[in-house]
């Protein structure tokens, strides 16, 4: 039956496996992009979610406002870029989510390009973390070394809660159910301000970890968003220490759809000697 048997069978192209794996990674990242995009309407969605208990007692006007806010979540889907500048009380080399009482209010810049594939960069004077659509890197500029992990790694620590709206929403949802959280919504001429007061979460029997991060502190989070564009305008986080609220996180500007150089966004940072961090100095996680 040789006539029916092919004399040669084709081999799968070398690119086949690579394409499949890349596509899978891209899909995962795309899902993550959508989640991140929704961060921009976090305040809106938070308001919508957090005021659920309020709905039961509120009047129809409030219900309409909540519906309006809920719709605003989708507004962020059309965004191309976002740049958030914020101050946080920490030290230059510390993890991004750590509050340090010996630290200062350091400037941070968080930039996202939502174009496919989406990429982002979070930077402060001593540390840069970035995601180049394939790998995540976290560079310690002083040492000129970095860590690399495939996909979206957890270099942002607890701070990632603020970058990943789903996590944030889940977290806030929990708080909404918690009797210890106080939620207030205030509407001004052009803004909607949402204030959430929460108790510290964690085991603080020896008080060592208390106030080491936002969530490990009695804290107050204030979200401000534009009533018309429905986008987040500002965010402020204060922690309660010795009966007084101290600001530990404060956005200084949030810009949308500004031109972003995608190449620069994923560029390796410059170390203390003015040299670019080397890829061979990467510790693969």
């Amino acid at each position: 039956m040789n006539e029916i048997t092919p004399k040669m069978k084709p081999s799968a192209p070398l690119s086949l496996k690579k394409n499949i794996i890349n596509k899978i990674k891209m899909e995962k990242n795309k899902m993550k992009t959508l989640m991140i995009k929704r961060l921009l309407a976090t305040a809106a969605s938070l308001a919508a979610l957090l005021t659920v208990p309020f709905v039961f007692t509120a009047n129809n006007e409030a219900k309409a406002a909540i519906r309006f806010l809920g719709k605003s979540i989708n507004k962020s889907d059309n965004l191309k870029t976002m740049e958030v500048k914020f101050l946080m009380q920490t030290t230059p080399n510390e993890n991004f989510d750590a509050i340090r009482d010996d630290g200062n209010m350091l400037e941070h810049t968080f930039t996202i390009s939502f174009e496919n594939p989406h990429i982002w960069r979070l930077e402060k004077s001593g540390r840069t973390s970035l995601f180049d659509a394939v790998n995540s890197y976290s560079w310690l500029k002083q040492l000129g070394i970095g860590m690399m992990a495939p996909g979206i790694a957890e270099f942002f620590g607890d701070f990632e809660k603020f970058l990943d709206p789903q996590n944030l929403l889940r977290h806030e949802q929990q708080l909404a159910k918690n009797d210890g959280s106080e939620i207030a919504m205030q509407e001004t001429g052009s803004q909607i301000i949402l204030t959430i007061k929460s108790k510290a979460k964690g085991d603080f029997t020896n008080d060592y970890l208390k106030n080491s991060s936002i969530m490990a502190s009695d804290n107050k989070r204030i979200y401000t968003f534009d009533k018309e564009t429905k986008l987040l305008q500002a965010m402020l986080v204060q922690i309660l220490y010795k009966n007084e609220y101290h600001t530990v996180f404060e956005t200084t500007s949030i810009l949308y759809n500004i031109p972003v150089d995608r190449e620069k966004l994923t560029e390796r940072p410059v170390n203390k000697n003015g040299q670019r961090c080397m890829t061979h100095q990467i510790i693969r996680l």
Binding site: P10, S11, A12, L16
Partner: peptide, 8 residues
Amino acid sequence: EHQNQLFS
């Protein structure tokens, strides 16, 4: 393991 057979 299977790519060649599936591709063919």
